[in-house]
Amino acid sequence: MDFDWTTFLLEIINFLILIWILKRFLYQPVLDIIDERRTGIDQALADAKRIEEEAKALKQKNEQFLVEWENEKETAHAQLVAELAELRERKLAEITQKIDEETERRRILDERCRCDYEKMIEEKAIAQGVAFASKLLTRVATPELETHLFELLIEDLSSLNEADKRAIAEAAAAPAAQIIVQSAFPLADRHREALSDALSGLVNKKTAIEFQCDETLLAGIHMTIGPWVLHANLRDELKFFSKPLAQAEQEE
């Protein structure tokens, strides 16, 4: 248990040197590498946190984008539905209009068919009427009736208006003008004279008249003055009776 001051002092110095040696060659390098690793870990953690934050931001952005996209989708869907509804309404209106037009066309067609049918019935009735009247008038066509019709013709000639009279006069005055008078029965002389007088009065000159017999007239007179035809006979009256329908069709 000897105490040696030299050893005591040298031990103090040795220990201080050992502190320096270990600090220089052991503690400092190890602590430096630990710090470096810790810094790297902290950096990696900071990077990871930053990446996580970025990922969260991206996620939030993505969610926001999804929400916006969803809104846009809903808006587009609503717009599409509205457009479809509008298109449907328009198409429906067009179809309705077409149906109406078709219905109207059909109605017109039906109306026309009905009119045609009525007209056909009417023509048929008229034809039957004409046939009936022809048969009836054929039986009643006598010289007396013709005389009566002759009188009607003379009466009509006297009652022509001035314009017709002037036109007939001009036609009769033409160089190649020919006046032909046809009757179902031979006209009596007095009737021929009366007719000649009436025509002379009408054209203001004495004209030659060619008298002919035509049994198809049934009864009455058919007179041709150039392009003018004057008649008062059953055949032409029956024709006239049946003509209005044909004229009406032509007018339509």
Binding site: L10, N14, L18, I21, L22, F25, L26, P29, V30, I33
Partner: peptide, 21 residues
Amino acid sequence: TWGIMLVLGVLSWFVTRSLSL
């Protein structure tokens, strides 16, 4: 004591000469 210091010094130098992460 010097021997201990020498051993510790050499060992410290040896084990810390090639530290890596």
